[in-house]
Design a protein around this nucleic acid. Sequence first.
DNA 1: CGGTGTATTGATTTCTTTCAACTAAAGTGG
DNA 2: CCACTTTAGTTGAAAGAAATCAATACACCG
Lengths: 240, 240
Amino acid sequence: MDVARSELFETGTPVACASCQARHGVVCGALSNGQLRELNRHSLRRKVEAGCEIIAQGSESSFYSNIMRGVVKLCKMMQDGRQQIVGLQFAPDFVGRPFVRESTLSAEAATDAEICVFPRNLIDRMISETPELQRRLHDQALKELDAAREWMLTLGRRTAGEKVASLLYLIATHAEPQTATSTAFDLPLSRAEIADFLGMTIETVSRQMTRLRKSGVIRIENFRHIIVPDMDELERMISA
Amino acid sequence: MDVARSELFETGTPVACASCQARHGVVCGALSNGQLRELNRHSLRRKVEAGCEIIAQGSESSFYSNIMRGVVKLCKMMQDGRQQIVGLQFAPDFVGRPFVRESTLSAEAATDAEICVFPRNLIDRMISETPELQRRLHDQALKELDAAREWMLTLGRRTAGEKVASLLYLIATHAEPQTATSTAFDLPLSRAEIADFLGMTIETVSRQMTRLRKSGVIRIENFRHIIVPDMDELERMISA
DNA sequence: CGGTGTATTGATTTCTTTCAACTAAAGTGG
DNA sequence: CCACTTTAGTTGAAAGAAATCAATACACCG
């Protein structure tokens, strides 16, 4: 069937969605073609630069997003400026907090990214009408909860060295290009952001990176590019 | 209508549930009388002593629970024995991890407690049949996620003194008996457990408690009983 | 080619942990 | 009922890890 025609007659999958990598993600994968078409009519694809704030802490946000490309960090900030990154989200994760309008955290693009923005009202309606969507969002929330608790263990009980190794491991296992054992990736975070994620200072992060480099566990090219010759070796540095 | 008769004819609310404080909680509040009766037939009320493990880390659990009374701690343990408490749950919270059988954490009664145990299969079926139940559990998961992230900020960025104040504040706001401004409560956690929650040692916890006591923010009776003359004062120690 | 932002490295200080002694309450058994 | 042991908590002194302060190196950019 002709795609343009199917679009015209409003049957089948919208063109924009057909080749979308989030088509079968948490949100869109739960929707019927009809819902997908409706959502598509009201959604907006947007490019955001690294550092751009998607949701501000304390603000009322009237939209949700799907991450299409790039990495988004979730941050909590104290009045005196101390900051803690409380989550990292990768494509094609869903970003937003159902049931509560005011955000208790900020969402900011860590890298250049692309997001697909949905009106809050529409998604809220679809959630209430579509048990499968509710189920998938519930499942994602529980996975984020697992991740948050895993990170609590890291923050509370691991040493600086173990913390850095944990973060590198986390990013390595979420980044694409990896061969059998060796893995290479670009850090989506600056040293300052790493420090904010691990609850330490940039100096300590730097020292621990140097330690890992000198002990041969990682190689660093150009500050941001990391090569892990042996992932098992890195894993051993975490002492799970 | 006669209660015994309604039970006999299997209409209306089960007797055991009628006066249950969790009747309108996350799980039971979402169920029809029919579902409530079915759940009631297969559920079991159980007393658990402080220290008793309800779910073991790494095990497959075939049940969920409602906390009826007492406090339950969620812990993650490393092989070398380091431990981190990643959540506290109070009556009438729901305990369990839908969608995944193997538990990545242990649940242990922090105080003497009473729980209502539900078969996992039955609840899973009810979740899939009852959008309202799914919604409520989704909502609870998101609230736990908010709490976990709030705690990540505490673990990563607050000082020892702020950490202890944060915990006392958390417990105070979840414990019942409070007057206008002043609040008194029994700590559901030992010093060792507080340390495991805050990612520090019992000695440091003790020192910080002493500091709060000497500065007049709290009074301590019999180690476990805490009196907070002025909650605003305690809140100021957290430097949100 | 200086200038700016980011990262590394070094010296010193601070905070928390570790090690150790001590106290108080609770349980045990003669 | 009273020694005695056990457990939980507090306090002190010393050691250690990470933060802070300060200087320097490195890339990127106009």
